[in-house]
Design a protein around this nucleic acid. Sequence first.
DNA 1: ATTTGATTACGAAGATATTCGTACAACACA
DNA 2: TGTGTTGTACGAATATCTTCGTAATCAAAT
Lengths: 127, 127
Amino acid sequence: MNKHIKPTESELEILGILWERGASTVREVHEILEQSKEAGYTTTLKLMQIMHEKGILTRDASAKTHIYEANVSRERTQQQLLNKMIDTVYNGSATQLVMQALGHHRSSQEELDQIRQYLNEMEKKQK
Amino acid sequence: MNKHIKPTESELEILGILWERGASTVREVHEILEQSKEAGYTTTLKLMQIMHEKGILTRDASAKTHIYEANVSRERTQQQLLNKMIDTVYNGSATQLVMQALGHHRSSQEELDQIRQYLNEMEKKQK
DNA sequence: ATTTGATTACGAAGATATTCGTACAACACA
DNA sequence: TGTGTTGTACGAATATCTTCGTAATCAAAT
């Protein structure tokens, strides 16, 4: 089965936090969420419970305070969203997306080199 | 005023078509939409009417068959979605996104060169 | 043991998005 | 003029997402 991940906006925010922190309690997630967004605690709780029902999160409920963890990989989710975006918004051109991404974010010298190296490797493989 | 664009999934699909085709009738949009999605004609109509109400589309209603056009630029919308995506899903790293985009889409030699050239220009500007 | 604080469970309200049936208007042409 | 076709308007049903109040549960502190 090739599970089709389609997290909502709010769910993505929570996933982002769990990917960064790893397994966490609702309170921990909520406290980070609060920094950028106004929300009640039970709202965050409910969201995470629903995500658990959907299978997006796993949880350890052995202790009173449950511990949640992302059950979809960051990479898979990234790739899925990226593909969708290239398809609908960039009309299929990954190159367009790449250049726009580069154009609007200051990249360090190291990052530019990293990308260049990546390009070189890709070229070799093509031959 | 800096309008904050936040098209829904369905709206994005329609925008994508209008960006490609330019001003179009509901039927024209609908026929393209049908190729990748199942939907009734009136559903597409309603969506485009709502988008018009929201200001996402303009329309010429002088003739019986109305003609719709995107009222948000592709670039602005791309940038907005891209930023959001880099922020939440790529943890702020545009470089990560760029490499993943390159890694999963066969790029032609021309495209690779184009990107390299772009990198060089960016480097010059930095100094 | 009782109180206090933190946590989860549950349900429901509100908001938004999606879908489509039906009615009405305009047009085409036999 | 009458009939069929194509289009828009409108409203409503459905689905989904988001938010939060309240009650029940558990644990720690007094």
